[in-house]
Design a protein around this nucleic acid. Sequence first.
DNA 1: AGCACGCCGACT
DNA 2: GTCGGCGTGCTC
Length: 809
Amino acid sequence: MTTMAQIGQILVDVPTMQTNDPYSYAIPAELEHQVQVGMRVIVPFGRGHRLVDGVVVGLSDVTSFDGQLKPIETVLDLAPVLNSELRQLADWLATKTYAFRITCIQAMLPNLLKTQPKRQVRPTTTLSDAEMATYFPEGAPRDFDATKLDEETVAGLLKLQRAGEVEVVYQVKDQATAKTTTGITPALPPTKLNEIREAVSQRAPKQADLLAFLAQMPADKVIAQSEARKQANVSAAVMTTAAEKGWLTRSTLEVYRDPFHQPVTPTKPLQLNAEQQVAVSAITTAVDEQQTENFLVEGVTGSGKTEVYLQSIAVALDQGRTALMLVPEIALTPQMVNRVKARFGQRVAVLHSGLSKGEQYDEWRRIDRGEATVVVGARSAVFAPVENLGIIIMDEEHESSYKQDENPRYHARDVALWRGEYNHCPVVLGSATPSLETRARAAKGLYTRLVLPKRAKTQAMMPTVHVVDMREQMKLQGDSDFSEPLMTAIQERLDRHEQIVLMLNRRGYSSFVMCRDCGFVLKCPNCDISLTLHMDTHSMKCHYCGHEEPIPHVCPNCHSKKIRYYGTGTQKVQQALEQRLPDAKILRMDVDSTRRKGAHERLLRQFGEHKADILLGTQMIAKGLDFPNVTLVGVLNADTALGLPDFRASERTFQLLTQVSGRAGRASKPGEVYIQTFNPDHYAIQLAQQQDYERFFVTEMHMRHQGSYPPYYFAVQLTASHEEEAVAAKAMFQIVEALKQGLSPQAIILGPTPKAIARVKRKYYYQVVIKYKHEPKLRAVLEQIRQAAQVPARHGLAVTIDSEPMSFM
DNA sequence: AGCACGCCGACT
DNA sequence: GTCGGCGTGCTC
């Protein structure tokens, strides 16, 4: 071995622009053999002895820093948690998303690997009884978190600190703990154990059982005590006796928290149809040849995309490579996971937010150790530490949940493409309704387009889609959530014992209270949006900050009693439906009814078992569910999304309607879809009715071209927020000034404007959007804005940069 | 982020 | 004259 490095380059966990580059730390002799690049460490940082955590990103013998180096305090890991690929990815991501490097690294690691820094205070001398009683009522040392203590205590403690009577100590706690259980191993050779067994008293049959069990155990194997007890059929007491008598030794055994303990029945690859065959062979050729060829697999629900994915993955695995499969969070139902597990068994690891932190960590370790070679997960799984990737799949690539809406504001698709290039492996993007960006890139030849036209299974007929003009319905029967044609169709299904899915766009978005006399709308005192009526709690709630107040019976503005609900929420629709169809069983599924863990799956299972006739829900029902007995799908208000001030409104509406239509009519029963709308002539609705994605793509591309929107232009959105509207507005005007100065005249600057919902959680939001084609100075200008935003950040001004935002709202 | 240093007004 | 407010710069 060559001489060990003397200096570690550490990215400290202090997200600022000045600490975005690594700092040099001395490696003490006793840590020389432990420290490796990619490990987490604890280092002293700043004056005093504040401890922070950090990540080793380099080792060297020299440094350009000419001051006194501080030594690394502790090494937190036994093995690196970030390999070379992920370290490079973090750097790329930081540049791409204008985020701090350490923030990117944290986004890549499981939550449990985040340390918890803690401050404590303790007396340095003997304090008076009064002081002890005031400041250390529960003894010393005590936690010192200035944000949680009252001002008086903080001030008092700081005073004592200045006087040198107390000191602040720092701790950095590593949360990463593996779950353990007691393991046992035979302490004596089998012959000896058998001897003892024969000598043991007749009145101790259980001890004899255990001895027999131990005798047949492999000598060097450790098994869980609980497992041994089951197999030998003995109690814990017998185990303890055996340990005391020296027959076995106990040890600590590391176990995984397995989130999917239920057994799955293995499946075999299905017979492919011609188009599927073409797709699989194109993809697997790229896998074979280790090419960074990327694919767009276009196929409607039931066209057999998943089978194409699974068989392509199988080829990668056969070559000793690994696979990553990304799905939207909402589609990560046990149904989906089981399908992959059924094909690849123990090799599959699952990563998503439904798992506990411990389970996430364990799945992550199984991947890290190479024990799992197929990873299925939501957005952040794109950072899974799989090595030697042979294929990356991203299902439902158009889903907006692939974009993270906090720092780092990355799109999982971009990360997937980066990793595909790094690993020389194909990336497969799949969707029935690809995002315009992706479809446009396929048109340019950047992705190979593979189309799966038919329904794979029974050639089930595509559903008939009816558009119901609600303006006419209004004239005919007044204000109702249900049109006549839809009600008739529902009744038919009920008579035939078939099932119905009804979708309401957006949770209670329009269920606000309005005064019919003066038009007054009850709004949240903290946020700039209407409060939503919740009949379950009999209160008005704000969906942004959670503010809650009683339902008004008198208008606060004009004191009229005609203050009523307006618009529609799932609960109100459910009530109306129950009234009109007293015999139908209705299941409601929205953010409120699925808040509890597992509620989502439970509701779906109930519906699958036909314990209800009608499933009523928000967008979430449009995705990933597959019930053969559903022959009618109704969209109650197709327009809500259309009216939003967003360039993607049509795209979203089209995707949603197409997707939900796919829920109707599987197997042998033909399906019908009713779309209720006030805009029956809108192209997004018309083309969704005709299920004509290609024409929608062409039409929408034309609209985007007209409006200079993505994918014709790149876009960056900047937001400034502050408790005082004037501060946020002023900051945004200054930003716009800087942009105008720095950018070329070709750059289109939209704004500054207050955001569509200008006030959320007591803060005002202002934004600007830059649309551009070629703007070499953009990075420099944005970095300068980022730099300048640091000073006012101390006074609560938050500036965010979102490259390629999902919407301009 | 969090700490010290330094510059200002209000107090013993 | 000093205590303590906050604005600013720096942390290997």
